[in-house]
Structures are given as C-alpha cells and as structure tokens.
Design a protein around this nucleic acid. Structure first.
Length: 478
RNA sequence: GGUCCCAUCGUCUAAAGGUUAGGACACCACCCUUUCACGGUGGUAAUAUGGGUUCGAAUCCCGUUGGGAUCACCA
C-alpha cells in the first residue's frame, strides 16, 4: 500500500510555523517512499473564519520551500474536489447514511453556547434528549423543515483503544467522549466529520496532526467503524511552543513563515530548523536539505514532548546557509537589503556583498552594518586612539598622510594590491600594520567596527571617495 | 474539575538497563587576524522529586510535583 498523506489547513490567515512543520512531516512521511503521495486539501467548512487570500499564502509557502503536492485544488487528482466547501453535498449524504447505520442521530436542540458557565460545578455530561427520539419521528420533523444538526451517537461502554505511531497505545473511556455535532444546521460538516469522510474517500494512509486530537481520535474511529471503513495510521505530533507555557501562535504575534522570510531568513534554513523541532536523525548531523530529509526521515524518531522554537538557533543555522551560498546567489539575495541604504552608484556593491557574506546571519542584518557607506556620519577623533593597534591621534594623523600619498599613486584598485601597498608602506615607515590600517579604516567609516578591513572598505568605496574621506579625516585631525 | 499526554544542560536533542550522560545553539576563554566577523581549540552547564524492581536505572513500575491538551454547530 503506497503511503498517502495530506496537509489540510483551513484558510484562516497566515501560515504559522507549527502548521508548516506538520506539513513538512506529512510531506516527508509520504516522500520517504518512492510512490508516496502528498496531497493538499483546503478545510473551509467554517465560513465565518474564512480569510481572503489565505489559500494563496498556503500555495506560495509550500512552493517556496519545495514541498510540492501531488493532488490538490489547483492541480486536481483522482479524489477531488480538494476544497471542502465544494464537497458539501457529500458530507450530508454520508451523515444521513451514518444516522441510518446508528452512528449518529438528528438533534433539534438549540445551539449550545460555548460559555464556560455550563455545569461547571456538577461537571455533568450533556445528555441529548433528541437521542431518545425515534428515527421515524426525527425524520418527520426534518421533513417538516425544522432546523436540525446531525450529532454523533455514542453508546459504547468501556475503553476505546487505538495505536498512535508516536505516542503508542492510547486508551480512553467511551464515557469521556462527547456526542459532537457532525453536520451543522447550515449543512456544512464540522471538522470531526469532514475529516473522517475525506480521509477515507481520499485514501489517506497516515493522518498527521497536532496532539490535541489524541483524545478525540476514538470518536473518529467510531465513525470509521460504523461505516465499516479502516482507520488510517495516526501520527500525532507535539506542539511547537513559544515558551514552556504557550504554543506558538499567530494570534500572539509570533513569527509566521512569511515574517521570517521578510526578515531575511532563507526558506531552506527554516525548513531545516523546524524539521529538527521534534525529530532527529539519530546522528550528530543537523544541516539537511529537503532532499536529504526525505532520505533520512522516519516516524520512529519523532519526539513526544513539545519543543520551544528558538529563534537564536534558527538564526545561527540561517548563517550557515548564507555562508554556503555561492557568490551570485548571495548577491541576488543581499542586493535589495544593500539598496535599502546605499543608493550611490560609485560604490562597489559586489565587493560589499563579498565582505558581508561571512558577517551576517540574516539578510536583515545588512542595513545597520553598512550605514556608513552612503555617507560617513559624525564621529569622534577619540576613535583613533586604540591601545591594541598602538595608535593615537598623532600617529593616526601621520599614518593617514602617508596612506593618502601612497594611495593617490595606485591605479589598480583591488584588495590584493591595496593591502600589499599599505603593508609595504608600514614596513618602510617602521610602523606596525595596524598603525596604518586602523586609522585608515576609521577615516573611511567613522566606526569602530566595520564589515571588512581598511583596504576592503577602500575597494568598496572606490578611489575617489576613499581619497576624499582620507582628506576630510586629515582636516578633522588638524 | 474529569480524562489524556509530557518531563535529560537556559534551548533543540543523543544515550531503546551497564557511557567520565554525547552533540548543537547560546555564553566564556584562547588561537587566527588590517577592526568586526568567519574558522579552529577548550570550558561552564542537565537526568524534576520520592519510593520500588534489578548486581546495576536517565532508561522499567508506582506515587508526588510541574507543565500541556481536551471537554464548541473552531479546526
């Protein structure tokens, strides 16, 4: 039997990290097998929560990280349609059938408010009076046009039992299960029902979802049982947390996939990082491409405890990915960020990108690192005093003069030449390298720390700008 | 509250009865070095707790504590 998994988000907004990780695991489980199929199904049965454009975000996110689906709303497949609102008649049909099979009943009760108030003290279970109605009588009322819902009927006693691929054997008393609504009065199914019907009809073999469904899974099994269907393998996964107490959630303003991308994180790094939040390969490697994850992933190595999302480690990992980029790719990614603060075109931005690559962990780090390029800011002459470099104001003034004279004579404006020349200059004058390099770097940047050294900055700024900044510095020191 | 689930460095995790409890991030130190980074080397740091079982427990069992989930015409 070939594996078929599904990612079934509801289009309620942005793609958050926990969701994306679930999709990843679903994708990897399917793709760990050559013929495995990963499908996309949109669960839009709650019209109140529908958000315009949310589906597009789902598509673009999945595409961006390379998790291509084999069947889905946009590309079709043999088990469509893949949008639940388009399957509406199907659910009603199956719901009525389930009533006939004794797995559900018509219910005419007024909507139960989601208030906390009810039965808090007595903790009594809701006992549906409509359950006692005879089927004939109920059908008459339905035929008469009375509003109704179809509610699950649970008469079993004792303990329900099922196996979860991650949590092992789960036992829950049937008395704990409540008879939830399966088909709403608007004719739409609830998740509890649509989910079962669709997973069966779409021949899903592995259901992967958050562990908050662990305790309601027996209810779904009852439905499978009533229809005579075989339940899928269950893979419940622990949540991704913001801290020890709270799940990561868009509501709290926690970073979504697109937020991270906007901040300059690479999709590959995000995927790599979240794969490791609840799973490990059993080796000490931790940098994996999606392709490698497909090879190494196994359900057995999934964790049972929640994992806290650590942006610091993701940031480190993103730095690893940035460093591995070839020069052209890095430049393509970095350029927009460089252009946020550098508009002049006499700046060698290729060289700028070159010095930036080992120095940033996210592309968002770029603007603050290069704020002196466009225009040098105000700075104090105290910057020229550096004990380790053995420079002070007097030494610096002298060195800058030497450097200016030497640089004016140089035509080949590349780092190797410039570095060799200034190094030779230091030797000639009986100075340490740093006594030349340090003041030059300060004169060019006005900053204590810069991406790149003196000669690299000179290359980035170009000969004209370099000479003019040196002259300005000399004047400032006079 | 009932029920279910979870518990190893601050964080992500390894160790499926016998390890000096390993790795990674972060942090600290040193090395490299035209500053800062990158890179390299080393260091600090954990089995929540009490009982069992066993020659031997992070690992198995029970209790405690702590945390989470769930009890909607949301998914």
């Amino acid at each position: 039997m070939t594996i078929r998994t599904r990612f079934a988000p509801s289009p309620t907004g942005y793609m958050h990290i926990g969701n994306l990780r679930t999709a990843l695991y679903e994708y990897l489980i399917a793709k760990s097998e050559p013929d495995g199929k990963f499908l996309l199904r949109i669960e839009d049965t709650d019209q109140k929560r529908y958000v315009e454009g949310a589906t597009e975000i789902i598509y673009s996110t999945l595409k961006r990280v390379g998790m291509n689906w084999d069947e889905g709303p946009d590309i079709g497949g043999n088990y469509g349609p893949y949008v639940q609102s388009e399957r509406k008649p199907l659910y009603a049909e199956y719901a009525h059938k389930l009533v006939e099979l004794g797995g559900a009943h018509y219910c005419f009760c007024a909507k139960q408010e989601a208030d906390e108030e009810k039965d808090e003290e007595q903790n009594m279970k809701f006992e549906d009076p409509c359950k006692r109605l005879s089927l004939d009588e109920a059908k008459k009322r339905v035929a008469a046009g009375e509003p109704y819902v179809i509610r699950q009927t649970i008469n079993k006693k004792g303990k329900s039992k099922y196996h979860d691929e991650v949590y092992g054997d789960i036992e829950i008393d049937y008395d704990e299960l409540d008879e939830g609504v399966l088909l709403k009065s608007d004719g739409f199914p609830t998740y509890n029902f649509a989910n079962v019907v669709d997973d069966h009809l779409m021949a899903i073999t592995h259901v992967v979802r958050g562990n908050e469904y662990i305790s309601s899974t027996p209810k779904y099994n009852l439905i499978y049982e009533a229809f005579g269907w075989t339940p899928p393998h269950y893979v419940h996964v622990p949540p991704v947390m913001k801290d020890a107490q709270h799940k990561l959630s868009k509501r709290n303003g926690d970073a979504s996939f697109q937020d991270l991308v906007a901040k300059g994180y690479l999709p590959e790094a995000i995927i790599n990082y979240i794969a490791l939040l609840g799973w490990n390969p059993g080796t000490e490697e931790e940098i994996f491409s999606l392709e490698e994850l497909k090879q190494k992933f196994s359900i057995e190595r999934l964790n049972r405890s929640p994992a806290i999302f650590d942006i610091v480690k993701l940031t480190w990992m993103n730095g690893q990915y940035i460093r591995k980029l070839d020069a052209e790719s890095f430049f393509a990614c970095a350029e927009p960020y460089i252009r946020q603060v550098v508009s002049r075109n006499d700046v060698n931005i290729k060289m700028l990108a070159h010095v930036l690559q080992p120095r940033i962990e996210t592309f968002g780090d770029i603007p603050t690192q290069i704020d002196f390029i466009e225009q040098i800011g105000e700075y104090s002459n105290d910057l020229y005093i550096n004990k380790k470099m053995k420079t002070d104001v007097a030494v610096s003034r002298q060195s800058l003069e030497y450097a200016l004279n030497r640089l004016e004579t140089i035509a080949a404006w590349d780092n190797e030449t410039l570095f060799a020349e200034l190094k030779a200059l230091a030797e000639e004058k009986g100075l340490k390298n740093g006594q030349i390099m340090y003041p030059v770097r300060i004169a060019l940047s006005g900053k204590e720390t810069t991406p790149g050294g003196a000669t690299e900055l000179a290359v980035i700024l170009g000969k004209n700008e370099t000479l003019s900044r040196l002259k300005a510095a000399l004047q400032k020191l006079a």
